[in-house]
Computed example of a mutant assay.
Amino acid sequence: MSALRRELDAFERVQAWKALDGGSSYGAVARALGISRQAAHRRYRELAAATEPPPGAAPAPKLRVSPEARAAVQLAGEEAKELGALRLGSEHLLLGILRGGDVLAATALRAEGVTLEAARLAVAPTLVGEEPPPNGGITAYARKVFGEALRAAASEPGHVIGVADLLREALRDPRGGACQTLAALGVSVDGVRARLAG
């Protein structure tokens, strides 16, 4: 596990270096990573002047993301914006998956009785009184969902991160927005997980 953590840290450092080398600000790097600008500056200030990847950094693992997974994340962002959310959470990822064209994940949700319209109504009340996040436009849990999907993919050479990977991770914590949305609909998270596995 520690070797995988080092690979992911190296991947993140290389991506931060590329962004800074390409002219991105610390604020932009911070938003992409879901951390504060100050934290990004502390972690990566020595990279800003570097002309090549950080010394000793392992080559970034080749992580591939399916077009459907990319589309689900993009649609999740649209859903969050449409609902007036101040940040993107796993509940919006659930909506993006329902809108997207992935067969396995969307079918697993629909087979348990989840519709896009009902899920939107169940998500709306969770947005009341939401405070702006201090470090960007994504919830800590949603960032964890993406991180766990990357870790799982990095442990399987050649694995392409798909929508089902994102949904599995989004449903891991019962306190997360995706699980809370399904609970509000009276839908069994275990039932959805079983359909993803089958």
Rank of each mutant, 00 (worst) to 15 (best):
M1N: 11
M1V: 12
M1F: 01
M1G: 14
L4Y: 04
L4M: 11
R6N: 12
E7S: 15
D9N: 09
A10K: 00
F11K: 15
E12L: 12
R13T: 14
A16Y: 05
A16N: 12
W17F: 11
L20I: 05
L20R: 05
L20P: 08
S24E: 13
S25Y: 02
S25F: 06
G27F: 06
A28D: 15
L33S: 02
G34I: 03
Q38M: 13
A39G: 01
H41W: 15
R43G: 07
Y44L: 02
Y44N: 09
R45N: 13
E46A: 12
A48R: 13
A49P: 07
A50L: 15
E52Y: 03
P53G: 11
P54W: 10
A57T: 11
A58G: 14
P61Y: 05
K62I: 07
V65H: 04
S66C: 12
P67E: 15
E68R: 13
A69K: 01
A72W: 07
A72E: 04
A72G: 07
L75N: 11
A76N: 02
E79Y: 03
L83P: 11
A85S: 13
L86V: 07
R87K: 11
L88G: 10
G89I: 09
G89K: 09
H92W: 10
L93W: 02
L94I: 01
L95Y: 10
G96V: 06
G96P: 09
I97D: 08
I97T: 11
I97C: 10
L98C: 11
L98G: 12
R99H: 01
R99T: 11
R99V: 10
G100N: 11
G100L: 08
L104G: 09
A106N: 10
R110P: 05
V114F: 01
T115H: 04
E117V: 11
E117L: 11
L121C: 12
L121T: 14
A124E: 14
A124R: 14
L127V: 00
L127T: 03
G129P: 03
E131M: 06
E131I: 10
E131S: 12
P132A: 15
P133G: 13
G136T: 01
G136M: 04
G136S: 04
I138F: 02
T139F: 00
T139Q: 10
Y141Q: 12
A142W: 02
K144G: 08
F146R: 01
E148H: 04
L150K: 14
R151W: 02
A152G: 13
A152N: 05
A154N: 12
S155R: 12
G158D: 10
H159A: 13
I161H: 08
G162D: 11
V163D: 12
A164P: 07
A164K: 03
D165F: 06
L167Q: 07
L167E: 01
E169Q: 13
A170W: 02
D173L: 00
P174L: 07
G176P: 03
G177T: 01
G177E: 09
G177P: 07
Q180S: 15
T181R: 00
A183L: 01
A184Y: 02
L185N: 09
L185C: 05
V187W: 09
S188K: 08
D190G: 08
D190C: 01
G191I: 02
R193L: 09
A194L: 10
A194T: 05
A194W: 00
G198E: 12
